[in-house]
Amino acid sequence: MITVEHVNKVYPTRSGDRLVLDDISFTLARGEKLGILGRNGAGKSTLIRLVSGAERPTSGTVTQEMSVSWPLAFGGAFQGTLTGLDNVRFISRIYRQDYKRNIDFVADFTELGIYLREPVRSYSQGMRARLAFAISMIIEFDCYLIDEITAVGDARFHERCEAELFQKRNDRAMLIISHDVNYVRQHCQRFAVINDGKLIFYEDFDQAYYAHAQNMNLHN
C-alpha cells in the first residue's frame, strides 16, 4: 500500500512561488493500477517523483508499505557519459543484484549488441528507451511508477514492453501517467485527472477522459 496524505509541492520561480500540487491525498493498494491524465506541465511527473521518494513534498507525507520502483521514463535514471553496460552495473550495484545475470537479460531484451559498449549519449531515442526499459525490469518491485515509458520506440518494442509489464507482472501495482489516453484505458482500473494542482478521481474512464478533454479545451 502507498498512502499519499495532504501533499503539497511548491516550486520557486522567477515570478514567485508556484503551487504545483495542491493538497493531494490518495492510496494505491497492492495490485491496483491507477492511471493519471493531465496536460503538459500539470504536475504528473512531479507527483510520480514524490511517490517514488526521489523528491520530497513541501508538506504532507508519502508512506510506502511496499517496494516502489524509480519513475520509469523513456530517457531517465542513467548517465549519458557511461556505456549501456556501465549503467547496468551501476544500477545492479545500488540494488545489490548480480550484474552478470542482468547483463544477459538486458542484452537479450534491448538487442543493442555492440552498442551496449558505447556511451548512452550516442544512442537514438528508441535505443535509449529500450535500455531504460530493460534496466527497469532488472529489479522486481511491488509497484511500478510508469512515466510515458512507451512514448518512443517501434511496434516490436511496445509489444515486448507489454509482455514484460502487463503479462509477466500483472499482479503488481502500477501508477501510470501518459498522454496516450488509450494506453491508460487499457491498463488501468482507477482513473484520475490532474489539473491546476488538484487530483480528482473519477468513477470510470469515460468520465475521466471527459474532464481531461474539457481541461484541454478550456485552456486552448
Binding site: R49, A54, W70, P71, G76, A77, Q79, I91, I94
Partner: peptide
C-alpha cells in the same frame, strides 16, 4: 548537477 539523473533512485 551532473548526478541529478541518478537521484531518481531514492537511495542515491
Amino acid at each position: 548537477e551532473p548526478n541529478l539523473s541518478l537521484m531518481y533512485h531514492r537511495n542515491v
